[in-house]
Design a protein around this nucleic acid. Structure first.
Lengths: 337, 337
DNA sequence: CGCGGTCATCGAAACGCTTCGACGACTGCC
DNA sequence: GGCAGTCGTCGAAGCGTTTCGATGACCGCG
């Protein structure tokens, strides 16, 4: 294993000069630095992680807790994990997985042993036990998602309420007076927080704008295409011609099929908005207006916040809501009499 | 932060005694150990990871490389990641995620910096570039899956060929003379290795047993229910009454629906075996005989192998095939004339 | 009683890096 | 020509463990 000593010797300088040349924390002359860089190259030097942690009191590792409950939607979850890993890597951090049954043990352990510089929390539940732990930890902790009691926590998430407002506004602006929200599974309204926040935003704004709102879940614990079809049929029979969908791809497809079966053309006879979808809605049979939930955005912001808290330890904990964006694809039609 | 010094002081012993008491590498008297354990408890001592790495030349971390290609089946992949993390944790190791676009960079980096004790490789491709890197690394590396050139590598996987043999044998034993294999997506036969190995096993044994074999992929890049239905229809029209399914849950459901539509009862009129499914087939509408692919088994074995290579550095690299198990559920019927 | 042998404990030397204070060599100014 | 101020570099002190060799206490034996 090649050490900083060997690099120093090869370059004819002291080890501290090598360290400074590589970290850039003190100026090093052009000539010297080049010699050092050459030595690093030819020797294939890579600093020892353990030594660096010990001396530098930085590990360049973030812990990522993900409970991975049975009802977690795997593709979405994976997108978040991946996005986090990529964002962290870009800032020079690696990701240590904390998938313990009891997230508490893992968080306490890695924090107490200084294995990680900060902890990122995924798949946040309303009554998440990790909230309490995060408050007791000295390591910066960033939640991607918002627990009920977010007091003293740093959180990042899409502004689901705002997304709900935006969706209703667009439909109301188009003249629709009754709207149906096809939501998530029933269980996710209990185990997660964001579906409720979107629902709240939709209800809220619907009331303000005088829009009739129906709301249906799309299955009990798992998405159920027949439940979606039934809900859609019911809505259509009541004359509803505007839908907000907050669900996975399958639900969109089931809805579109049902609409097609009725001879209704999306963007002409009927309006559809996909709210907070984390998959690519452009691969659907029909282009759909979308207010996307972009994992990359949340995760990048989360990583940025973690880094910031590391750099300025005084930084206040607060909730960061990412403003919703509306991507038009022509699926909202003016209401007909 | 509490250090080993404070523990030593509190217990009235030297730090080396504390270290030995905690590691058990040298005998410590009952009395002393209890005092030390008490001090550890009350002070909430947790050894510093960096210091431990530096002094002990062990990090207690495994790297996990997962390329996460677009065509990766997320739920299956997640099951493997989770199983690996759990198995590693049980042996006292944490998992560091290596999701880099170029896995090479990450593997080299973490190995060179001694960040990990060993590397586990997931989602192995036939021409996987990580094979070459693994050979050049000093860190033990274990592949979960088998690349084309496995020379000099330690690999773990289900015996897919054996699973193919087993499936055909069961159907042939039941008197079936023609069988259809509903395989994976077309792309996975190029990008992965295991679908080919299962196919090979099936073809092989079918030839030996004089069984007519048809083979259909279940979509191009992604599973396509209509392709499954078409393949099933075709097979049925040719009089085939025996199916081997190597695919995700949706494919099973599409097949079962098609069979039901023809008024065929599984386990009476028609035989179905699910080969190498990594999900729970008992949640299907009809109980299906299954030769399961159990992520826990592969991942536990992989972790065990990594640990073994760490303990006895001389251990030879070899391929470990997990023998297939046949779980009967009554879905194989005797062939009719 | 003294001697070799356990057993439990201790002191000190790594491990490879970061960082602080100091120092010499210049430069430019009075 | 001497002095303050830069700039680049160096030596050494940690960082918190593990681990090796040594030491002292105690035991049983001749």
């Amino acid at each position: 294993m090649t050490t900083i000593h060997e690099v120093a010797e090869a370059a004819g300088v002291s080890i501290s000069t090598v360290s400074y040349a590589l970290s850039g924390k003190r100026p090093v002359s052009e000539k010297t630095r080049r010699r050092i860089e050459d030595a690093v190259q030819t020797l294939g030097y890579e600093p020892d992680a353990g030594a660096r942690m010990l001396a530098g009191r930085r590990t360049q590792i973030f812990g990522l807790t993900e409970p991975l409950r049975a009802d977690t939607h795997a593709p979405t979850h994976m997108a978040f994990v991946l996005a986090t890993a990529v964002a962290a890597r870009r800032r020079g951090y690696d990701i240590l997985l904390l998938t313990d049954e009891q997230a508490s043990e893992g968080m306490n352990r890695v924090a107490a042993s200084n294995l990680v510089d900060a902890i990122l929390v995924l798949d946040v539940a309303p009554d998440d036990e990790r909230a309490e732990i995060a408050r007791s930890l000295r390591s910066p902790t960033v939640f991607i998602g918002i627990p009920d009691d977010a007091h003293g926590l740093t959180c990042v998430d899409l502004d689901f309420e705002g997304a709900g407002h935006l969706a209703v506004d667009r439909l109301a602006d188009a003249g629709h007076t009754s709207v149906t929200l096809l939501g998530q599974t029933a269980v996710s309204y209990r185990k997660s927080n964001f579906p409720r926040r979107l629902l709240l935003g939709v209800q809220d704004r619907a009331a303000q704008r005088g829009v009739d709102l129906d709301w249906a879940t799309t299955g009990d614990t798992t998405t159920d295409a027949s439940a979606v079809r039934a809900a859609a049929e019911l809505a259509l029979s009541r004359g509803v011609r505007a839908f907000i969908v907050h669900a996975v791809g399958d639900v969109h497809e089931a809805l579109l099929e049902t609409l097609a079966a009725h001879g209704l053309s999306v963007g002409e006879d009927v309006s559809v908005i996909s709210a907070a979808a984390s998959f690519d809605t452009s691969s659907l049979a029909v282009p759909i207006d979308t207010i996307p939930l972009i994992p990359q955005k949340s995760c990048e912001l989360a990583v940025d916040l973690a880094v910031r808290h590391l750099e300025e330890p005084g930084a206040p904990a607060q909730i960061h809501l990412i403003p919703p964006e509306y991507h038009s694809a022509g699926s909202v039609a003016p209401a007909r009499e």
